[in-house]
Design a protein around this nucleic acid. Structure first.
Lengths: 223, 223
DNA sequence: GTCTATAGACTGATAGAC
DNA sequence: GTCTATCAGTCTATAGAC
């Protein structure tokens, strides 16, 4: 039924869009892409449905037929690229427990995260989600969940395993991971959060990440 | 001259409002307060000048006479409360260099910062500034500057002094302070950034801050 | 009587929705 | 393409200070 499809949401309150024919799917794709670009550039309130219509090349009727309201289009577009951004990214935290050189493995892992999370498009998305979290709490929860599943979760398991093997001494792996992420990725991320477009020189990034890992190991490594 | 006053800005691009009689100043105060409440609740684009007019109790002519445009009112209101929030807060980083118990002093200092920065009104303001940084870069710069002057700056000096006295070994005090802030305040702040209104139990906050300080000292304290 | 500051109706544009 | 609501910003008639 039309109304039912147009109002379905998943566990996070992000609209669920049913599968369909190729032509329909391509139009929907065009709308979502246009919406994402407009919302990322303007924010939710300042974005215009007319502008999204023009960008996507479909008619307003088609747009409203598929998404119903501005709110639902926003959630579908932003929720979608949020998932996509993190998809295809292998956490590979399990390799960490086996690594011969733990320090190098941690530097590589946190460095890779930092490179991904500092990408201009990811930072723009992050700023948008933070700014709209008051109006759309489900987006904030989704962002936190996605980044947690990608970064923190696997690492907590790896640290716990490393603790069992006697290579680390972490009483609270959950907290330790949050500290590691904060002391590495979090440091350059804070600057770019308030100064968009700040260039982060790769050499400087490596230096910051390395220092963060050393901070972590100074406390938690078994001598 | 009228036009000159209505367009004057300071070094950060925040409108400068000249002093005036008590009655005029009280009206201006009412406008700014109403504007801050509306902008914090709705964001820049969704906030309505009519709503601000109603809230403040003055007429639209008065409002436009004083602030000229929505943009200028936004910058004046948000820039104003941003400064106010941090005013009257003594950094007192100099006491750190003299502290007998450095660990306790750091825990107290970072704990106080965390308590201030996690206040719901401060977090709401922070989310707004992050969300509007694309449109109003000067607000992002101002936030970074204000928090830096309040937290990081004095602490960098204190760490440098403690290094001279042989109690710490910090090759890069600037980076060390960013790590300390990230590993203490930054940890609970990240949660509340994406999940507004998350209650942070004071005991848990102390535990997190203490652990962050211990992380810092494990790396940088001279044995 | 003159003049500044104000109230609030008004305007043209544009929004979301259908 | 049409519709109605609402937006930022303007304008005019008036109230009150001197």
């Amino acid at each position: 039924m039309e109304a039912e499809t147009a109002n379905a949401t998943d566990a996070y309150g992000i609209p669920v869009i049913p599968a369909s024919s190729d032509a329909v799917r391509r139009k929907r794709r065009a709308i979502v892409d246009a919406a994402a670009a407009e919302f990322l550039a303007e924010g939710y309130a300042a974005a215009s449905m007319d502008a999204i219509t023009s960008r996507s090349g479909v008619s307003k009727a088609t747009l409203y037929k598929h998404f119903g309201t501005k709110e639902r289009l926003f959630l579908a577009a932003i929720g979608g690229i949020l998932r996509e951004t993190c998809a295809g990214l292998e956490p590979d935290g399990s390799a960490l427990a086996e690594a011969a050189d733990l320090r190098s493995a941690l530097i590589t892992l946190t460095g890779d995260w930092a490179t991904l999370l500092l990408r201009p498009d990811v930072m723009t998305l992050r700023r948008l989600v933070i700014g709209e979290t008051g109006r759309f709490p489900q987006l904030g929860r989704l962002w936190y969940q996605v980044t947690y599943d990608m970064l923190n979760g696997p690492l907590v398991e790896a640290l716990t395993e490393l603790g069992r093997r006697g290579r680390l001494e972490v009483a609270d792996p959950e907290l330790a991971v949050r500290q590691l992420v904060a002391a590495t990725v979090g440091v350059p991320q804070l600057v770019d959060t308030f100064a968009p477009g700040t260039e982060t020189d790769p050499a400087e990034l490596t230096r910051v990440v390395t220092s963060g890992v050393d901070l972590f190991l100074a406390r938690y490594a078994v001598p």
